[in-house]
Every structure is written in C-alpha cells, then in structure tokens.
C-alpha cells in the first residue's frame, strides 16, 4: 500500500496516516498479519518527522488496529471485538445519519442512495455475516 501525505490538507499529517491505514484495511488492501513499513522507513519515504509516524502508529495500536511485535515490526491486527455488537451498531448509526443528512441536502432520493451504496459495497472488504446478526 502506498502512503501519502499532503501538507495543504486541513487534516494533521498523523491523522492522514491513521485514515489511510484504516481505509486500506477497510478496502482489503491491508490484511490482518500484513506488515507495515517501519517508522523509520515511512518517515524517510514520506519525508516527515519520525515522531509523526510513531504517533499515528501508537494511536492505531491503542484502538487495536495495529500490533507491534518487538523486534519484528508493525502488523495489521486481527479485527478485534472489544466493543459489544450493540455499541458498534450505535457508532455506525451515527455515521449513517451523517450520510443521510448529506444525501438529503444534496437532493438524492432514498432509492438513488441505496443504488449507490450497492454499487460501492463491492470495493470494501466486509466480514462474513455473524450468527447473531439480526
């Protein structure tokens, strides 16, 4: 996966890196167990301060997305289920609401939105359906 950083963006660099890793995982470009470039390597490639890269990695590690193995490197973690399904569902509905607000404002019908969701869904790596799913 190719990382990028854009200093004209209003997003801080460490945030950009976090978002890129998360997007990479969501799209299946990064699989659990994949190794990420080291802090040094990424710092050199992107020409950013190593502390900025370290900060992004630390944050991703804290939320359970990445895993550091001493001496071996930084890896994509197995998807964790720290939160209950209910809590995760709540988080997602909040995001969905944001999407709906935007769609209404831009003048899309519910049907059009559904079609768009169907079209794009294939680009992402979803987990297979869990048993307890309603």
């Amino acid at each position: 996966m190719q990382f990028q950083c854009d200093t004209t963006s209003r997003k801080p660099i460490y945030r950009q890196l976090i978002d890129q890793v998360r997007r990479g995982i969501a799209r299946g470009q990064l699989q659990p167990g994949d190794r990420l470039p080291s802090v040094r390597q990424l710092s050199r490639d992107l020409v950013v301060n190593p502390n900025t890269v370290a900060r992004a990695y630390t944050e991703l590690e804290r939320e359970g997305t990445l895993l550091t193995q001493q001496g071996r490197g930084v890896f994509v973690a197995e998807p964790g289920n720290d939160l209950t399904k209910k809590a995760r569902r709540k988080q997602l509905s909040e995001k969905l609401d944001l999407l709906f607000v935007e769609a209404v404002h831009l003048g899309f019908s519910a049907g059009e939105l559904l079609t768009m969701v169907q079209d794009r869904i294939g680009q992402f790596a979803f987990v297979t359906e869990e048993k307890d799913a309603p």
Binding site: R40, S43, R44, V47, V48, N49, P50
Partner: peptide
Amino acid sequence: RRDFLESLIQIIH
C-alpha cells in the same frame, strides 16, 4: 527543497 528535507529527516533519525 524536497531533497534537502530528505537529508534533514535522515539527520533526525
């Protein structure tokens, strides 16, 4: 400038 920054990053390492 990018070259120069790259050198600087190397120094920071």
